[in-house]
Amino acid sequence: MGSTAIPTGTKWWSGGKSPFNVSYGKVMMWYFLMSDAFTFGAFLISYGTIRFSVNNWADPNHVFNSFPFAGHANLPLAFVSLMTFILIFSSVTMVLAVHEGHQMNKKGVEKYMILTIIGGAAFLGCQAWEWTHLLTGEHVAMLGDGTLSVLPTTVKMNPWGAALSHTEMVDALQKTSHEQLVAIANTLHHGAESAHHAAAASLTNQELINQIASSEIHATHTGPIAFGGYFFGITGFHGFHVFSGVIINIVMYLKTKLGHFEQRGHYEMIEKAGLYWHFVDLVWVFVFLCFYLV
């Protein structure tokens, strides 16, 4: 409460004033955020239920271990830490914008809104990279019929099961079609010229199997299919909130720039946009916990 004293004996419910001491718009923003919290909560709890119901959920440290421009380096938690700090920092710049609004400092609001918008855009860029990395990834996994395939992570495919032993892999290779063996052999020569790819197609099955079996390939079982749907569904829903938050913040920046709030005499719209933006950060705290940390 700080140094503000509530007028003693205030009859909050007797009419003529807001019993919550805030404007209608702000109360409704709070109620919207509360309903949104239940939506996100339902999604995350549903994810938790399915994750608890199987023996072999994907280990986040295996799925999320890459970093832009770091090649195949194993860096669990690194990229998501960057995303988390970007979002925390953009929350700080947002609350500083609200603070400048309280002081009626137009230039200050503009500066911090720009920084907040940049933070939001940076977060979305990170998410776009992460999604692309998963959707175009190439992982060798054993399907239900005992053959090996090259799989990305999508809503229908999850290559993140338990590791296959070397013997299991060699057995599975014997059952795998020529086409898939070529595809697997080609994942061994990433970044190599296409001559390599053409060469693989002309090898016999046994030559391909020998080449694959002697390489340092990591083959796995497939994991529960639900993983992709939950991951892309929940981070996508959150990312869409970030995206709409960035749009709202751009509108708020323009309205500040045009002097609308100065004429109005207060910057309450910045506060309401700020509530939404902090909520987006708040949800990320829980998404970070449920998908990446535990």
Binding site: G16, K17, S18, N21, V22, S23, G101, H102, G265
Partner: peptide, 12 residues
């Protein structure tokens, strides 16, 4: 100057 509201709903 500090912002001012002219909103009668708000007590303080």
């Amino acid at each position: 100057s500090a912002q001012h509201f002219e909103n009668p709903e708000i007590t303080f």
